[in-house]
């Protein structure tokens, strides 16, 4: 099978798991999204060797590396909100900018601090 064809089949295969996730979420009234449930299903199937990595790897890496393309239509959707943007656009932007910087910096620093402490502890034990 050519590479392109394999990517397409694997993308459709992954899509099936998203649909399965959507279905289960609806039936069982779960609060999470179908695609996240689908992710866990695939993870479980890989873990229990029901699925082989080679059955999904090409499709998954195609989808995740071109993911920005799939965000573009939702970004274009902003043009529908002209009045809100004209009225409050700068306020929205300030909140999102400052908050995103804060979140990223804090998360990164906490993780780095914890990782280094763990590494130091292990180092002491090793001595």
């Amino acid at each position: 099978m050519s590479k392109a064809l394999r990517i397409i089949t694997q993308v459709l295969f992954l899509y099936l798991f998203a649909l399965l996730g959507n279905f289960l979420v609806k039936q069982l009234h779960l609060p999470i999204s179908g695609s996240i449930l689908g992710l866990f299903i695939v993870l479980g199937l890989l873990h229990f060797k029901v699925l082989k990595l080679s059955m999904v790897e090409l499709g998954a890496s195609f989808l995740t590396s071109e993911m920005l393309l799939f965000f573009i239509p939702s970004a274009v959707a902003i043009i529908q909100y002209k009045t809100e943007i004209l009225q409050h656009g700068s306020q929205f932007l300030i909140v999102i900018l400052l908050s995103t910087v804060t979140v990223m910096a804090v998360t990164g620093l906490v993780a780095q601090f914890a990782l280094r402490r763990l590494a130091n502890k292990k180092g002491e034990i090793g001595q």
Binding site: Y15, A18, S33, S35, G38, V42, A60, L69, F70, F71
Partner: peptide, 15 residues
């Protein structure tokens, strides 16, 4: 195209 976000999220199972 937006719909393809769903299998993309599922695809994060691989990494």
């Amino acid at each position: 195209l937006s719909n393809l976000l769903q299998p993309a999220v599922v695809g994060f199972a691989v990494p």
